[in-house]
């Protein structure tokens, strides 16, 4: 075949590049995320519940946060009413991170595992975490 050598080398390089993410992670044991719920505020909760149902939060907390952002900044609406009627002040720092005060072992751990890097903390100031 005409130039088959070149073609085969090219294909090989291509295959290596495409599968890079797969073998790059081979042999690295990243622990699966276990969101850490052990914070003082959550410990004090009567019902260990998030703002919305756990499945909803797990799947859609980014959508919720974006809705919050638009409500607070664009509509000037600073209170969120959850589906169960509970009211929450709309604030990333003062609501989410009040309960989840262990950002590095909750939000970050999960995001790192999944390779997501929300840029919110370039501006929003995450509360100091205790050394627990």
């Amino acid at each position: 075949m005409y130039d088959s050598g070149k073609i085969l080398t090219g294909l090989l390089i291509f295959a290596l590049l495409v599968t890079f993410p797969v073998w790059y992670h081979l042999g690295r044991a990243t622990p699966p995320p276990e969101p850490d719920l052990d914070t003082p505020v959550i410990a004090g909760l009567a019902e260990k519940e998030c703002i919305e149902s756990t499945e909803y939060m797990r799947a859609y907390h980014m959508e919720l946060l974006k809705t919050w952002r638009d409500l607070a900044v664009r509509s000037g609406e600073k209170t969120y009413v959850a589906r169960d009627g509970e009211k929450y002040p709309i604030s990333l720092e003062d609501t989410c991170l009040k309960c989840h005060s262990n950002k590095s072992r909750f939000c970050d751990q999960c995001h790192n595992y999944l390779g997501v890097d929300p840029n919110c903390w370039n501006c929003h100031v995450a509360p100091e975490e205790g050394n627990r």
Binding site: E93, D94, N119, N122, C123, H124, V125, P127
Partner: peptide
């Protein structure tokens, strides 16, 4: 001031 975000 932790109550108000900085900008970037």
């Amino acid at each position: 001031n932790p109550a108000y975000p900085t900008r970037e």
